[in-house]
């Protein structure tokens, strides 16, 4: 295609937008709303993801070693634990270290522990994290089967609940995004349909004098693209301002720290522009094909 032709298609697409002012306004608004919801959702989802990641990373197992196990055997056990492929970080806490930590925790009430040094009731233990937190249950099972392991403790119920919540958030998020995109697609394609309908005579004549289908399509593609792009401006501004405010004002009040503005908002902006442009063009492609059969 020649550059001058390309410029012509762009001009035509732009002209269509202003010619059908109200319809254009309506579909830009619907794209705006869709993308705004999508953007809010993306930011929310990312933060939930980050939050659950932070919690997940704290999930650890206490592997208690059988009482009376020799030092050498403990070292052998450590080697065995580390050799499991799903196991990540492994920290050894000896009886003595354990007691020391307990004392520090109790601080003022240390006298409760007096006399325990001679007959320390705490076992040697390993603190183990799974490489992938969702494997925790599986790793715990494997570790309990080792001969020198007395018991494996971890917050089983809490961990499982946490994982099912984060999984739900991720899945329902995906469904939500897909649903919204289809809604926007439908609205854009309807708008383009109206503008095409108004110009079907022109299209008919173009076809009769030998215009190719692509020559006819391009202006409408531009129109859809512009609707998508214009529709992404307001959501990006609102999200940027809103998130900036949120990060400044709310951060520190809660336990959880928000994902930093940069790069999150920039990535979301890029995604929204991309999705806006894409559904704009797909929407117009969907409406044109029927009118090209002359």
């Amino acid at each position: 295609m020649k550059i001058s032709t390309f410029a012509r298609h762009g001009r035509e697409g732009f002209r269509n937008l202003s010619r059908n002012g109200w319809m254009t306004f309506a579909s830009i608004s619907s794209v705006t709303i869709t993308l705004l919801l999508l953007g809010v959702f993306l930011i929310l989802a990312y933060n939930v993801q980050l939050f659950s990641q932070q919690i997940e990373d704290q999930v650890e197992m206490n592997v208690l070693v059988k009482d009376g196990t020799e030092r050498a055997q403990v070292l052998e056990l450590e080697r065995q634990i580390k050799s499991l492929p799903a196991v990540g970080e492994v920290t050894f806490v000896s009886k003595e270290d354990g007691l020391q930590q307990l004392k520090e925790k109790l601080k003022d009430n240390q006298e409760l522990l007096n006399g325990l040094e001679s007959e320390n009731p705490l076992p040697d233990k390993f603190i183990v994290k799974a490489k992938n937190p969702t494997d925790t249950g599986y790793v715990a099972e494997k570790l309990s089967a080792l001969p020198l392991v007395e018991k494996v403790n971890y917050a089983k119920d809490t961990v499982e609940k946490l994982f099912s919540v984060t999984k739900f958030v991720r899945n329902s998020g995906a469904v939500f995004v897909v649903g919204l995109s289809f809604l926007a697609l439908f609205l854009i394609s309807n708008t383009i349909k109206v503008t095409i309908f108004a110009r079907r005579r022109e299209i008919e004549i173009m076809k009769l004098v030998g215009a190719t289908n692509w020559f006819i399509r391009w202006p409408f593609l531009f129109e859809g693209l512009l609707i998508g792009l214009f529709g992404s401006i307001l959501p990006i501004l609102l999200l940027g301002i809103g998130y900036d405010y949120l990060v400044r004002k709310v951060a520190g009040v809660m336990l959880f720290t928000f994902a930093p503005f940069d790069p999150l908002v920039y990535s979301v902006a890029l995604i929204l522009v991309g999705i806006g442009a894409l559904i704009g063009m797909i929407g117009s492609m969907m409406s044109i094909s029927r009118f090209l059969r002359v």
């Binding site: 295609m1 020649k2 001058s4 032709t5 012509r8 005579r201 022109e202 008919e204 004549i205 173009m206 009769l208 004098v209 030998g210 215009a211 020559f215």
Partner: peptide, 23 residues
């Protein structure tokens, strides 16, 4: 089958424009 918003010469030129003839 003329386009009402285009002038006579634009209507005629239309047939060459859509096949990307030189200006």
């Amino acid at each position: 089958k003329l386009l009402p918003t285009l002038t006579v010469s634009e209507n005629i030129a239309f047939a060459l424009e859509v096949i990307e003839a030189p200006k």
